[in-house]
Every structure is written in structure tokens, then in C-alpha cells.
Amino acid sequence: MKYRVTTATRTSRVAGLVTLAVLVFVALAPQWGTRADLRLIVEFCYFLALAQMWNLLAGYAGLVSVGQQAFVGLGGYGLFVFTIYLGVSPLMAMLLSGIAAAIFALPTAFVVFRLRGAYFAIGTWVVAEVYRLSFAQVSALGGGSGKSLPISVIRSIADSRAEREVLIFYVGLAVAVFATGIVYWILRSRHGLALTAIRDSEPASESLGVNNFNAKLVIYVIAAAVTGFVGALIFIQKLRISPDAAFALTDWTAYVIFIVVIGGIGRIEGPIIGTIVFFVLQEFLAELGTWYLMILGIMAVVIMLKAPQGLWGLVADRFGIQFFPVQRRLHVEATRDKEA
């Protein structure tokens, strides 16, 4: 018997080409799009990146966090601290904000990793609240009412408004691609196998010698870093920060959870599909205000109850397709040796 372990499929190769074509088209948006288009694409990108990170945590590492707004907020405030008080250039400040978020993730993990399952979820939320309330106490950052990015810092991003918007656009595109890529890379590595084992059965994976704590910690810190970078991106676009906006549960976690659940939890394609659905719904329903959030919530509840694999899962399971194959397939070429 010969064995071959592969992860690629024919659909995945076709999908790769399609993805590449879409990416090239989107990357040319500064040529064909309006300023509103660019802004919308950046929003799409940061929601996609946040969704990929949340999916990495909840869908693969079993870490259902309701406190990812902590890292969005830390990244956002990091941008303001690094640029205003330390004189770092905005792009460098965004990178440093991601690193700072990762550093804050370590003591956070020290506390919340003591809680399991649903209690972990609420624990992360408490910690995010602690960060929010703490930043509200810092008067140098505007306390509870917040702070605007000074003109001098805005100028240092790029000279003209148009240049700034194009630069932010490419940073946004890059982080979305990076977030999707790193999830793909992690899942295809040995690490990914360990994660899937943890998600599927914690005791079993422990008995296989998978070090759950370290594997989870690594994932948690990576997600914090990317989420923190996205936070810096969000607030370089918004130009103004306040504790309530930076650590907003609804914006940075509730929407993101709905995106992943609707798209398909535990699948890389899920956040992509979910983000598309989210933006399409927003286009048609945003003026409904509170009804919009209720509809999103109802959709997420119904999908969780009736089709927990999400919209992408429904499609993929029916047609057996995977755009980003992370499952290893075992091909057994029978060579009719002697009977077992």
C-alpha cells in the first residue's frame, strides 16, 4: 500500500486563480473607485481581518472570546500614544500597536485562561471592560471623551488627503490578506493539526501529547497582535478615538461574531462569506437602525440552531468544495499485497 497525504484539490487551484484575479481587481480600486469605494473596501478589509482572527480563536482553538474589542482598543490607543507622545511615524506606530496588543495579551491570558468555555468568554469581556474603564481614567488621552489625532500627525501619514486614503487602503488590503494568509498557514502547519485536535476533544488531544496551553497561548497572542494592528488601522481612518468607540463590544466583537457564525465557523472561507453577507445586508438594511441589528442577531441564532456550519458550510458540504483546503486527505493506492 502506498500513501500520499495532500491538501490541495482541483477546486482549490481554480479558487486560487479566482482569488488572485479578485485581489488584483480590488488592488486597482484607486484607479477605478471613488473615495467612498475605497473607504468601504477598507472597512470590509478590517472586518474580514477581525473575523479571521475571531474564527482562529473560536473556530479552531476553542477560545470563544467576547473580549476582542480589548485588542482593537489597545491597538487604537497605541496608535495615538506612539504617534503623539513618542513621535513615531504612523505606519511604524501601527506595527508597534500590534506588538503592544500582543504584549498586553500575555497578562490577559494569564487571567482569562483560568476560565473554561463560556466562562472564558465572559472573562475576556470583563478584561476588555477593565481596559475601557482604565483608558477613561487617563486624562492625557482625553479621559472618557477621547482625543483626536493632531493635524501634524495626520500630515505625517502622507501630504495630501488622496494620498493618505490610498495608503490606508493598501494597508487595509494588506492586513486582510495577511490575516487570511496567516490562518491558512497556521492551519496547514503542524500547529494547525494540534489545534483541530484541541477543538475536537480537549482531553483526547492532551493524551496525544498536544500541549494545549502553549498552543492556545500562541494563537491568542497572534490574534491579539493582528487585532491590535487592525485597531490602529480603524482609528487612523476614523482620526478620533474614545474609550467607548475603541472598546465597543457591538462594533468589534458582536458584528464579528455574527459575521463568522453566518459565514461558517471553523472554516477559512466562513469569515469571507460572512463579511460579504454583512456588507450586503448593511447596504440594504442599515437605515432600519435597530432592526438591522435584530435581523443580524436572528440570522445568527437561526443559523447556529439550524445550520451550525454556516452559509459556506451548507454550500461546501453539498458540493464538496473547499477554496482553502486545510484538511489532509489520505490517498491509499491499494497494491494488493498479501492479506492483512
Binding site: A58, V64, V66, G117, A118, A121, A254, I257, F258, V261, I265, G297, I298, A300, V301, M304, L305, P308
Partner: peptide
């Protein structure tokens, strides 16, 4: 996940 996400919704 289901109880957590459904009650969150």
C-alpha cells in the same frame, strides 16, 4: 459554541 452564541445573539 451553540449555547454561547445563541444567547449572545
Amino acid at each position: 459554541l451553540p449555547p454561547l452564541l445563541v444567547t449572545f445573539g
